[in-house]
Design a protein around this nucleic acid. Structure first.
Lengths: 340, 340
DNA sequence: TATATTTGCTTAATCGATTAAGCAAATATA
DNA sequence: TATATTTGCTTAATCGATTAAGCAAATATA
């Protein structure tokens, strides 16, 4: 293979008979370098096909221009869209991202953090695994003094910047919508209470139910892992009640799909007999029949804001303890499953 | 924030009153360093919470231990699963990966390649965008002398290592299956011929049709972008034929879903009136009704082999022109849409 | 006992790019 | 004209880890 050595600043300097330092400054458009020299440097750089050695510059400047990203899984419309938008902002600022997946495993998440720190990333943007309760690894990131930004699955105790949607308010929006469709007994298949976002959805559900004077019964509120399978199981539980609900609000789209499958199998008409609303706007929600009403979490905005928050942090030397908590409004997408 | 400087080899050396060189060697278990010193070094390293500066070592050794990955999009079960398996192999060997998405855009793909080269990756593992015809950017990677491995969407002209499934044979398998279900007029909604994998599926379809003496008519073979929308359009075209097919083999799952929607809308029974088979085993194929028969591409194996091929290449100094072409057997998953 | 080898380290250079400090020539200002 | 400032560079050190070369002491071999 062509193993010709790469061109360095020194090579350019030699051609022009100036110092490497002058070349470096010319490349960075330093005001103390003449236009003539700058032009010559750029010309020779192009001729020799110069590509800066990013590693050398990283070592000298003490920063890698890499941002680590940790997500539960990339294989989800929400996360991949967040990443895409994050990337756009960060690339523009000269940063590249290293994406890692935790697969919802706490252990994998910890090892990802170690990997990213080892790679000397300049910051970490993360959404936590469902399993994660112990925050010591994130404390480790904080103690390194590099920016840590959480999104979607954040943890308030950590005291770091956060971007996400207003889960509490989203629940209100859903309940209000279901009531407008004439629903009188609304059940909630929620996520695990220990995860903040799911806890907020549950609180929102309970408060909205009270606000509108609907029956709030313990067996109408179930906690779930929100997998498709568990969505099926929880829907079956609800159908076995002697007084089943006329609407079900599920805190995740996969579980909502499971619920829908059970309803279809049992020939219960959706939305005529039971209205169904999911959460997350996964693409399949519009593909199944009936299509599932769900909540759009503005993944593009979240990605963009998370990236911008990072940029802001990295550019302020004087660490300000003021945190950015960006809570976005979500959007209810009404489809067949609740549109009666 | 705690901005205490990171511990370096020098710090450890100072504590033990030996040279940084000795510390470095002790860390790497050099045979010329005494056990006593090694133990002491490890003890102090732990005490001072030493983390090696990856960047400094990368600069000195001329390698970054980063592998660049380019995929059309991470938001697909196939690609995210490939990446997951690749990561596992590479992490074990001390490599980290930088994932980038081309979003099926040739231009984005080129800029991703530039980004990765700029980041000094030690190699690139890629699956090409649909748009990509011009290979000059990949030639650039080759000319840098770093390993380039392609998977799934590869291009034979490039003369690089490749991992994928046997698309030609997969088509045969599908046609054979459909014939076993009594189908007599089998249509194919294929991808763009310029992409090798789709061309192979088309060739496999045509040859199998001939082999089994089925009618091979031009209007039964359509070329498509394989999006959901185009799947719908092409299915409508097929239904307008005066002699419509009794089975449709679609070269991608999203397009297959589009086709299914049209069939459902027009009250054509699947599989009774028309059998449907997709390609790729995207999760939703098992979720829609009827569930869609499809082809599993062994994403885990592909990821593993691609990573292993990279490791093999990076560890052989003497460049051997012998290429690895790994063609895996695929697996047909028979579901309701073709099981009559 | 005399020489050869091995052990366990040190010294100094290196990977490229960057930057603080400084210097001479050119230009501006008093 | 004398001094101050600006311009356009150079010199040398630096970011940490690594490694070739080498040296003295310890050990092995003849």
């Amino acid at each position: 293979m062509a193993n010709k050595k790469r061109t360095t600043l020194k090579d350019i300097a030699k051609v022009l008979n100036i110092s490497p330092a002058a070349v470096s400054k010319a490349m960075h458009d330093d005001s103390r370098i003449s236009d003539k020299t700058k032009k010559a440097v750029n010309r020779v750089a192009k001729e020799l096909n110069y590509q800066p050695n990013h590693i050398a510059s990283a070592l000298r400047k003490g920063k890698s221009n890499l941002v680590g990203v940790i997500v539960p899984r990339t294989n989800s419309n929400f996360f991949s869209s967040v990443i895409e938008n994050m990337e756009e902002v960060l690339n523009k600022e000269g940063y590249n991202i290293i994406i890692t997946q935790s697969n919802e495993s706490f252990q994998k998440e910890c090892s990802n953090i170690d990997t990213l720190l080892f790679t000397q990333v300049d910051g970490i943007i993360a959404s936590m695994a469902n399993e994660t309760v112990d925050l010591s690894y994130y404390e480790k990131v904080k103690s390194k003094g590099i920016p840590l930004i959480l999104f979607d699955r954040g943890e308030n105790d950590l005291n770091v910047d956060y971007v996400g949607i207003d889960d509490y308010e989203s629940s209100h929006m859903i309940i209000k919508h279901l009531i407008s469709k004439g629903c009188k007994r609304i059940a909630h298949i929620g996520g695990f209470r220990r995860t903040r976002i799911f806890n907020n959805r549950i609180r929102g559900y309970v408060d909205a139910i009270h606000k509108y004077n609907l029956p709030h019964e313990d067996h109408l509120l179930l906690e779930s892992s929100l997998t498709l399978e568990d969505g099926r199981a929880k829907m079956k539980e609800l159908l076995k009640l002697k007084n089943p609900p006329d609407a079900v609000y599920v805190a995740g789209d996969y579980a909502a799909l499971g619920a829908l499958q059970v309803l279809n199998e049992q020939k219960i008409r959706v939305p005529e007999d039971i209205c169904l609303v999911g959460f997350g706007n996964e693409p399949f929600t519009s593909l199944v029949s009936p299509s599932i009403s769900t909540v759009n979490q503005h993944s593009n905005e979240i990605g963009k804001i998370a990236a911008e928050t990072f940029i802001k942090r990295i550019n302020t030397d004087n660490w300000t303890p003021k945190l950015e908590k960006n809570i976005l409004k979500s959007e209810l997408i009404i489809r067949s499953s609740s549109n009666r």
